[in-house]
């Protein structure tokens, strides 16, 4: 891979891994959600994310050009090689934690993928154009839940507030960039991350106002996912997700 291909490959891992890990996390609710309707809603969202990750990891494997597939990338990489944003690997917690995590990442996805539709990389542009309609719905869903949980009962308000405080320090990592990203930006392949961050802050503030939740002070932000430095939760998630392929290599349906 030349320099630009390497940068594209890293971007595909970042976006694809985030989609895969968040999709896996949400899928853990399958059969356990608070009500049947939400169980199906969450499963739909999980499947959308896994579908998106397939597109991105397939493209990553193409760029890598070592004869690997999306499955090799998903099932045979260890924690340190994963590039998903830290927030996506955080445990489900209670329903408020799941929805706040979802809302934070949905707002990011909404603005990022909308801008990615203008990418000069035709494959990424195509992937983004397919994703934006799904993401539009995800954001609508998590936003409506935020309103109802935040501005609901005293208990739901408190749980939402706690979830926001717990997850806030993982939000900064979504916007971290490195020299690979800068190279892509110079080539009009990705949007200006500062702009995405501004839009994100504004949207979160607006929704939180209606949900009667205070936006936390900026404070200390965890970072490191760009270098494969993850929270302790990712290892357990991968152990479960990769177990079959690791125990029975090359097994198929």
């Amino acid at each position: 891979m030349n320099e630009l291909e390497t940068a594209k490959y890293q971007l595909c891992l970042r976006l694809g891994d985030s989609a895969l890990i968040l999709g896996h996390r949400i899928s853990e609710w399958c059969g356990h959600a608070p009500i049947l309707e939400e169980d199906i809603a969450l499963t739909n969202v999980a499947l959308d994310f896994v579908g998106l990750s397939r597109n991105l990891l397939t493209y990553a494997a193409q760029l890598q050009n070592e004869g690997k597939t999306e499955d090799d990338l998903a099932y045979l990489r260890d924690v340190v090689l994963y590039r998903n944003a830290l927030i996506t690997e955080q445990p489900n917690g209670d329903f408020a934690v799941t929805m706040v995590r979802q809302f934070f990442y949905d707002v990011f996805s909404y603005f990022f993928y909308s801008e990615l539709c203008n990418s000069h990389d035709i494959t990424l542009k195509g992937i983004a154009e397919k994703a934006v309609k799904e993401i539009d719905y995800h954001l609508r869903h998590s936003t409506e839940w935020l309103y109802r949980l935040g501005d609901g009962t005293a208990e739901s308000h408190q749980k939402t507030k706690d979830a926001v405080e717990e997850l806030w320090m993982y939000t900064g990592d979504m916007f971290d960039i490195d020299q690979n990203y800068r190279l892509l930006q110079e080539n009009n392949i990705v949007p200006d991350m500062n702009k995405i961050k501004e839009l994100w802050n504004l949207k979160v503030k607006t929704v939180f106002e209606t949900a009667t939740i205070n936006v936390p002070e900026l404070g200390y932000m965890q970072s490191g996912s760009l270098k494969g430095s993850h929270t302790e939760h990712l290892g357990f998630l991968l152990a479960e997700m990769q177990h079959i392929q690791r125990s029975y290599p090359n097994s198929t349906w």
Partner: peptide, 19 residues
């Protein structure tokens, strides 16, 4: 289906019946 209000009912209907 069950839902707390009209908007959530609409979303649940979309998720349950138009997949």
């Amino acid at each position: 289906l069950h839902a707390p209000d009209a908007e959530m009912a609409l979303q649940a209907a979309r998720d349950v019946y138009t997949r």
